[in-house]
Design a binder for these strands. Sequence first.
DNA 1: CATGAATGAGAATTCATTCAT
DNA 2: CATGAATGAATTCTCATTCAT
Lengths: 203, 203, 203, 203
Amino acid sequence: MSDGRPAEGRERLLAAAIRHLETHGEAELRVTEIAEEADVAIGLIRHHFGSRDGLVAAAQQRRIEGVTREDLAGMRATLTEVADNDALMARVTELTRAVTDRRRADVRLSRFAAIATAHGRPEARETIGATLGDLLDDLSVLIMEAQLRGLVRTDLDARAVATFLQAYSLGLIVHDLDPKDPDAGKLTDVIVTAVRAILSPPA
Amino acid sequence: MSDGRPAEGRERLLAAAIRHLETHGEAELRVTEIAEEADVAIGLIRHHFGSRDGLVAAAQQRRIEGVTREDLAGMRATLTEVADNDALMARVTELTRAVTDRRRADVRLSRFAAIATAHGRPEARETIGATLGDLLDDLSVLIMEAQLRGLVRTDLDARAVATFLQAYSLGLIVHDLDPKDPDAGKLTDVIVTAVRAILSPPA
Amino acid sequence: MSDGRPAEGRERLLAAAIRHLETHGEAELRVTEIAEEADVAIGLIRHHFGSRDGLVAAAQQRRIEGVTREDLAGMRATLTEVADNDALMARVTELTRAVTDRRRADVRLSRFAAIATAHGRPEARETIGATLGDLLDDLSVLIMEAQLRGLVRTDLDARAVATFLQAYSLGLIVHDLDPKDPDAGKLTDVIVTAVRAILSPPA
Amino acid sequence: MSDGRPAEGRERLLAAAIRHLETHGEAELRVTEIAEEADVAIGLIRHHFGSRDGLVAAAQQRRIEGVTREDLAGMRATLTEVADNDALMARVTELTRAVTDRRRADVRLSRFAAIATAHGRPEARETIGATLGDLLDDLSVLIMEAQLRGLVRTDLDARAVATFLQAYSLGLIVHDLDPKDPDAGKLTDVIVTAVRAILSPPA
DNA sequence: CATGAATGAGAATTCATTCAT
DNA sequence: CATGAATGAATTCTCATTCAT
């Protein structure tokens, strides 16, 4: 952030925009605020990103990408580490416990909001769809590999499984927002039951 | 405009705003348009909602409530109509087929966006959480009734099951946005497998 | 304020308006706020005062009148209590000390602002001028009585003296606003010197 | 609009606002009018002053400063021109005659209103207080110089004298507003009597 | 690669007033 | 004597974009 490299302003702007999107909606993003927080002149946004939309698109892209890569890396690690379905289910239980932890609610709500941006904006819809599609592709590949290794049942379509896994974990926002603060253990039981059904080969 | 019921203009404004939010993004909402469509003066928005944001917040909340009630009514109908778990699973398959139909993607994205409103707005978060919590409560009751009737396995917590059902159906937005346009039938298979696992009593 | 007398709302409105004018400018007065603080319906303002201006005029009138009456009462008391010019000057010194006390700055600034209302509003100018004129008249009478009693020099016009006394005491707002917080005693010396010159009969 | 000096539009806006405030009340000031008269876009008001209120506050402050400088220049001229106390008092009489001339009432009322801006606005109060304080400082220096030259009595505090002189001349607004239109000559007599008392060395 | 004053159409807000009850 | 929903013209505010330096 202070190593004198050229195009430093670009990074500062991007970082400021991402920081904003993580805590506020896209609609609340003001180019003047971002420029101020990045400590650069307003004109630099046009110089590097063409327009506000260019900046927002670049920031969203990097943001969704980032979360996606983390998710994927975790799953990849899981699959390479386990040797049979029992070990896999043990890891699934563990991961589910982590995912139902409401302390990460803010991160999920932020991602949720990023996806919601697609509503009423065809261009955003396309970009977001593409990013989500890529994630599903990568996840499908992982599942196929697991199917080939006999870790996962093979009579279900890998991409459909990937879609379902992404769907319920994204939708757990309803759990995050639930004012009842219900027992996370009971939810974990339900999820593990469902996931076991779609992953475990029939005995 | 003056024929009896007080605060009629308030309802007209809300209805107009909801109608708009169902098809467009919040950012595109113009108070002048809403007032015109509601056939009242713009000043009435301030009188009843304080500001544009107040109107939007009220509309979003009522919108979530509305969709919620519809969902619940459908589920109630389903449960009263079926007599055993087989019939239930047949209905579940049917409903899942409807839910994975991407022609309804816009409606789901719209609801998704309404919930995303909670991001970065503590008050909205509370209100939305309360509404979603109420839905989960009602759904839990339905599931408990089904458990009592022997339609659904009883070793899983009803509210946790309700949460999971809501979660994956909400999260299917990733399917809607998926540019690959994958085979919906294969996704239905996965979902039915998962739902059967958490609903069907062990044979 | 709660004795059930009719036209109670009128008094409540007036009181609320006066309370507002004492701490804020007239420009900041909103009829809705006043009605809310008075805990009556907005329509009542029109009913009793015709319009916002009617309410403000009534409030300003009562306010300036009130301060004026207090001032005058104090002066009258002073003059009736003293028997010769020496006693008068002693009282003047005492009063001057009170007037240069910056703890009453807020009250003076409020009165100052009320008079400033005359700027750019011919109608207000007339009302305020009339009220100030009445005060000068009353004060003149007091001074003339003092002149007749030999307490005050007679070669200066009573009304001109009254005007000067009012002028410097009003203008002491510059002392109130002075951030230096200077020695009030030294200012008292100057004022007493000046007042003695215009009041004391030549030796 | 782009010929060299930066932020020229800021000055044009300030000048236009000041011009307006000198003849009309603050309430009548319209940002569109000011922008038009300054020949700049309205947006520039926000850019430089944040809001309408910011512009008004900046204009009022500069206005008080301006009048202040003029006053001071006149006094300085007076003091350098006179050689003894007699000459000084002759000039004082002359100046007093000018100051009691009600044809300049509008200018004084305008200045009066500018100072009244301090009412109910702590920040404005501070700024205005600082400006007035600076004037008192400068005036004090003039008086001290006059004391050193033997033109003015030395047993009264210079700053207290400065405060009193400012006070009564500001307060003469009561004379301006007086509907009786009294004899200005008689008022001049009173003022000269008072001023002589605080300026003339004891014979 | 960078600055920031200037633009201005578009939108929201303001707020005293009206009037049916 | 009292209510408060409804009005809407007038005004201010918004904020991405432009461009000369």
